[in-house]
Amino acid sequence: MSLGPHLFLALLEGTVTALVLALTALGLSLVFGVMRIVNIAHGEFFMLGAVLAWWFASLVSGWPVVGFLLALILGPLIVGGVAVAADWLILRRIDYDPESTIVATIGLLYIIQQVVLTLYGGDAKAVEAPIYFRVSFPWFGYSGYKLIVAGASALLLVTTWIAITRTEIGLQMRATQLDEEMAQAFGVPVRRVYAAVFALGAMLAAVAGVLVVPIQQAHYLMGGDPLLLSFIVVIIGGLGNLRGTLVAALIIGITDGIISVFFSPTLAKVLATLLVALVLVIRPGGLFGDEDS
């Protein structure tokens, strides 16, 4: 294939990857930004979403659309419940201490992985896409569902952004993010905001997991890569900076696609990784963060 269509394909792939990544990373960014904690188990919420999608689909097998819609609505709710429980049982009791939270969420990661491995098994399992069609470009074919995923992710990103900037809860979140003590003094129920943010972060990851599973399959170890990439996106985009998160996700998704056109793939990954690291070194606060963050 000539270079033009090849680049077009890489761009297309990069955009889809980027939008899903943005959705996953948005959850981490909120948690990171508002609560100032590193949630190592964030990728596991993504995985739980995917596995629940498989479970709902097999519950109503033969009706992929019904199963998928059920998963899209109930999956994140269940995952949100798990997150609230984790917040209430563990994080609140250790007072969101940054170091203890790392250990606790590593513990949570192991617990979730083992429960899924025991109940669901170690194999990757496929879920049928609710809507399936193949888009034929002159040079190659492409999955129509992927385009739908990209659109749905974009829609969810916009919705979340509106919720945070235009609603009372969003205001409380932003207040807590800026200054926790001050927010408390102004009557913001900080503890409840924390629980809500933690749950919302988990739910966003879970939605991304549900959306992605017809493309990627559900596997109990699938949470690792989204976690790493989300971290990177969040830091590059600047802590708690939603627009930054989106732009960073686009940069990373598309760079990854384009570099792979020109370099041998593993070398491409090495280069892309080093590039991102150097961006951070030059702008430690992220592309859109404060210089001295």
Binding site: L9, T17, Q216, G257, S260, P265, T266
Partner: peptide
């Protein structure tokens, strides 16, 4: 056509297959 170990989407490698 080698595929890197951490890859989760593959479409972008298929154009490298000679026609």
């Amino acid at each position: 056509i080698p595929i890197p170990p951490t890859e989760s989407s593959f479409t972008k490698y298929f154009p490298k297959i000679p026609s």
